[in-house]
């Protein structure tokens, strides 16, 4: 499978994501935000960073880029889309994922290695029992990562298996409701995650647990 990684002005983690995608699946390429054509990639990563300087609101401007129109079409066709950190914010702003991400509860940026629990759901069905229950050690780093949605929407997300990742008990770094770290769309092919799996792909710089997040989505590629 071929991953494409979007690059906006102000993206920070796009090179890291490109490296992680190439480790995970062998091939990945960068896609400039002004490109309307994704060039035949099978899945897209919307990377972390501060697209458009977080001006107006995190992710609020990047969602209008031409490449995001193409991402919406890919998502509608069932292609895997992974939004990481700022990318998660962009996907929420674009309406491809439910909910919103608010300022961290203590109003400070936080960068910390933490444990994530993979929640069983439609998109983790083929991951096997072993991996589904071992926590993933992945770093988080953000100032606006507090997941929020109205109570009834949260109930529905849980019921429909759209809560994909939670912070391990006691490790919620930002005050996210119900310890939610990542959510998916109803079809399960669009995933937003606040922590950074692309920074957990090499034992030299951390863990390798982030690869499991990419693999989880790769199973969905056509």
């Amino acid at each position: 499978m071929i991953w494409g990684v979007l690059q906006f002005p102000g993206s920070c983690d796009e090179r890291d994501a490109l490296y992680a995608c190439s480790l995970a699946s062998g091939e990945a390429r960068m896609i400039w935000h002004e490109e309307r054509d994704l060039g035949g990639v099978d899945g897209v990563v919307v990377p972390g960073g501060f697209s458009y300087g977080d001006y107006l609101r995190a992710g609020a401007l990047a969602r209008f880029s031409p490449a995001m129109e193409a991402v919406a079409e890919l998502a509608a066709a069932g292609g895997p889309v992974l939004g990481i950190c700022n990318g998660f914010q962009v996907l929420c702003e674009a309406g491809l994922l439910p909910g919103a991400l608010l300022r961290n509860e203590n109003l400070r940026f936080v960068c910390r290695q933490l444990d994530l629990l993979e929640v069983d759901g439609p998109i983790s069905g083929d991951m096997g029992p072993e991996s589904a229950h071992r926590p993933l050690s992945i770093p988080a780093k953000h100032g606006e990562g507090r997941y929020y949605a109205p109570e009834e929407m949260l109930d529905r997300l849980e019921r429909d298996g759209q809560v994909a990742y939670r912070y391990a008990p006691g490790q919620n770094p930002n005050g996210s409701l119900r310890d939610i770290a990542g959510v998916s769309n109803e079809a399960g092919n669009v995933l937003g995650l606040m922590p950074h799996p692309e920074h957990a792909v090499d034992p030299l710089t951390g863990s390798t647990d982030g690869l499991r997040v990419f693999q989880r989505l790769e199973g969905l590629a056509r």
Binding site: C12, R15, D16, R108, F109, V110, C111, R112, H199, T205
Partner: peptide, 10 residues
């Protein structure tokens, strides 16, 4: 140091 991104750039 937790208020700083210490890992970007891999």
């Amino acid at each position: 140091f937790e208020q700083y991104d210490s890992i970007v750039g891999s």
